[in-house]
């Protein structure tokens, strides 16, 4: 079998239309994951009774199991839960009306949350205790000190790792094919299956992923430069 360079180009444009699916999975899982991760990290840092033990269990379980397994557990487990509840409470809602991509959103958000909680936690620990004391000394509440002083600096410190998480979720989103969501990778497979030019199709998919990743890295570098200006003593 011979390489067909022109098909790479053809496949490239056919795969292009799957970009919104991939990006939506990435964006949803990163945003929800960040929210879950932040709450999880704070609960653990402030040692909230009961919740912090639950948070630790969540993080170790999710980080200790593959992302594909999370997707399958949600895909098979969630409908049982929802339908069971619907039956006993007499709701008309049934799990069949959940779109396939919904399972990807939910399970990948849960995955991202566990990883991002560690990123946020490391960022919070990078802010020295003295600044929080200073905030308290002028009469700020713990919440004000968190919101105004430690959290913004924690985010700045965590940015490189957050960018890594975003890239990880972008690439991880390919697993959504397991619940028949057509993302970039699945689209490549579909494109190739008509003429068996799998290598060309996956190469085109790889180029698209590479391009998207480069964009994320570029954006992260720009944000880092802006947000981290105070560290280099520059004036914003």
């Amino acid at each position: 079998m011979q390489l067909d360079p022109s098909f790479i180009w053809t496949a490239f444009w056919q795969i292009f239309r799957a970009i919104p699916t991939t990006l939506s999975i990435t964006v949803v899982s990163v945003l929800l994951g960040f929210a879950i991760g932040t709450v999880t990290a704070l609960v653990r840092l402030y040692r909230v009774p009961v919740l912090s033990q639950m948070a630790s269990a969540y993080v170790t379980f999710i980080r200790g199991t593959p992302m594909l397994t999370h997707l399958l557990l949600i895909y098979f487990g969630l409908p049982m839960l929802i339908d069971g509840l619907a039956e006993s409470f007499g709701w008309s809602f049934r799990s069949v009306s959940i779109p396939m991509i919904g399972f990807a959103y939910i399970s990948f958000s849960i995955t991202a949350g566990a990883y991002m909680s560690e990123v946020v936690r490391a960022g919070m620990q990078a802010v020295d205790r003295g600044q929080v004391e200073a905030a308290h000394s002028v009469g700020m509440t713990s919440f004000q000190a968190l919101r105004r002083i430690s959290f913004p600096q924690a985010l700045a410190a965590a940015l490189p790792n957050l960018a890594n998480s975003v890239i990880g979720m972008l690439h991880g989103s390919t697993l959504a094919f397991a619940v028949s969501v057509v993302d970039i990778n699945a689209q490549a497979q579909i494109v190739a299956s008509t003429n068996w030019k799998f290598f060309e199709a996956y190469l085109a998919a790889a180029l698209i992923f590479w391009g998207l990743t480069a964009l994320i890295e570029r954006a992260a570098a720009l944000i880092e430069k802006r947000v981290g200006a105070y560290n280099r003593g520059g004036v914003a």
Binding site: G130, Q131, A134, Y230, N231
Partner: peptide
């Protein structure tokens, strides 16, 4: 505690300025 802190202020050995603020 908040009322007490609002009546007092501290100057720290290590300055403890908010590093992300001018």
């Amino acid at each position: 505690i908040l009322r007490l802190r609002r009546k007092t202020a501290m100057v720290f050995q290590q300055y403890n300025l908010f590093r992300h603020k001018t």
